[in-house]
């Protein structure tokens, strides 16, 4: 129990002291996961919309595939990206291993299926409602997909947030491809893992509380913006 109490106190002290090292770590976490989520949205949302709207061979297989990949273990993704980016790997020449870019790539791979699968669900619901009207107006399926992506933008923010939440909370992938290098690739989750291995459980938990607070505030802001936008546009 003292650990929990200590942790809340430590978390509060960390935030109150506006510790620059902590701020750097939080900022890197946000930057990496935000970039990864952005890529995942740019790639995953059109895929999800086409899976919802399109009719092509292999569609069902792809739907099952993307739903399944939502549970992709981060460590496996990390390993995969590590082997790709390693000097001995096919993309080794770029020297990207142990850089924030590598972390963005790994998280983007991890998150894209989540965004795609959730987008497919949202767009499939919209498609059921809009299908006849859009086809009557002469929209092709890809055009309909684009229209529904724009029209479903408020609901789709949930898919993006789910992806972001997964990205910023995972440790397995960034640990492997980032290497947890102090000041370069050390993010919140890898710091937590490190402090846990040092046996500094109160500090680890305090960092965990800061992470939760950051994620919660982002969700709260997004929720408020979404509510406002929905009231505005219906």
């Amino acid at each position: 129990m003292t650990t929990l109490g200590d942790s809340f106190l430590t978390a509060w002290q960390l935030v109150a002291a506006a510790d620059t090292r902590l701020a750097g770590i939080v900022w890197l976490s946000l930057r990496v996961s935000f970039a990864a989520t952005l890529i995942a949205c740019v790639v995953g949302m059109p895929i999800g919309a086409l899976l919802a709207v399109g009719r092509f061979p292999g569609r069902r297989v792809l739907i099952v595939l993307f739903n399944g990949l939502m549970g992709l273990p981060p460590v496996v993704v990390g390993l995969l990206v590590y082997l790709l980016l390693s000097r001995a790997g096919p993309l080794g020449a770029f020297g990207l291993l142990f850089s924030p870019t590598a972390m963005v790539i790994a998280q983007a791979i991890l998150v894209t299926p989540i965004v795609a699968a959730l987008t497919r669900q949202v767009i499939a619901d919209e498609w059921a409602e809009y299908r006849e009207q859009l086809r009557s107006l002469g929209a092709s399926r890809s055009r309909a997909a684009a229209t529904l992506l724009w029209d479903g933008r408020f609901s789709l923010s949930t898919a993006a947030l789910a992806g972001f939440g997964r990205a910023i909370a995972e440790v397995g992938a960034v640990m492997i491809v980032g290497g947890n290098i102090d000041g370069v690739t050390r993010v919140m989750t890898t710091t937590i893992a490190l402090e846990t291995s040092k046996g500094d459980l109160p500090l680890a938990l305090a960092l965990g509380l800061v992470l939760i607070a950051v994620v919660l505030s982002i969700n709260a802001v997004a929720y408020a913006v979404r509510g406002w936008a929905e009231r505005k546009w219906g």
Binding site: R31, V32, A35, V42, T101
Partner: peptide, 22 residues
């Protein structure tokens, strides 16, 4: 508009990802 959105999103992602790896 979607193509423009796509490109700018990737550019932002690139900036964020590579930002301080000088």
């Amino acid at each position: 508009i979607f193509r423009r959105l796509f490109c700018s999103a990737l550019a932002v992602a690139g900036l964020l990802g590579a930002g301080s790896t000088r």
